[in-house]
């Protein structure tokens, strides 16, 4: 193959595309062993759904559904994004549908399986110096928990993906199909609300 100026100019792009192809092949290989995919990614998807919905049953149910959908759509996965991003995107879509249907079922107010603030605040490591500092830490976690519950669905999704799943902002934008600036805006507002609530507990 003759070396042309065009080839020389696109040399960097070629390396990039090779890397992309390699990553895609790796993702496809990873997807081939679906049991392993479930084993590796299930805790993460469950954690995201549990943090977002604060409902154990809904989180478990949607996690199962997420992997069932991924299994049935595994041939459509092109490897353009990472497997983790793809699975999280499926989970986000399922969660949107769930919240939409739950808003229609407005009479279902009681949720026996919802996470309680005590579930969260009780889990604070005891390695703190004094009982007072432990109590303060529990209060802070409870305040964050209550503040997160008061966020809008989009703000909560962005917040959870950033501060629980520790995704980068561009990964969040890719996962939930938003502009980077919109993601930043949601995150800014979410943090402002949490900061306000935290200030109230001081």
């Amino acid at each position: 193959m003759a070396t042309t100026p065009a080839n020389m100019l696109s040399g960097g792009q070629g390396a990039g595309s090779e890397l992309a192809v390699e990553k895609r092949e790796q993702a496809m290989l990873e997807l081939a062993d679906f049991d392993e995919v479930v084993r590796v990614y299930r805790p993460r998807i469950l954690r995201f759904l549990l943090s977002s919905l604060t409902d154990r049953d809904a989180a478990e149910s949607l996690t199962q559904e997420c992997f069932m959908k991924a299994w049935s759509a595994r041939h459509q996965f092109r490897g353009d994004s990472s497997l983790s991003t793809w699975l999280t995107r499926i989970a986000v879509n399922l969660m949107r549908d769930h919240l939409r249907s739950r808003s229609l079922r407005f009479w279902q107010k009681t949720r026996g399986s919802s996470l309680d603030v005590m579930d969260i605040s009780d889990w604070v490591p005891d390695g703190r110096g004094t009982p007072e500092s432990l109590a303060v830490a529990r209060d802070r976690v409870a305040a964050v928990w209550e503040a997160v519950k008061s966020l809008s669905a989009q703000q909560r999704t962005v917040f959870v993906l950033r501060f629980v799943e520790e995704l980068e902002l561009d990964e969040i934008a890719t996962t939930i199909g938003m502009n980077l600036s919109t993601v930043k805006s949601h995150l800014y507002r979410a943090l402002a609300i949490i900061r306000e609530r935290m200030g109230g507990t001081k």
């Binding site: 802070r140 976690v141 520790e166």
Partner: peptide, 8 residues
């Protein structure tokens, strides 16, 4: 607080 929340 966010770190504790994440851990929880």
């Amino acid at each position: 607080a966010l770190s504790l929340y994440r851990s929880a």
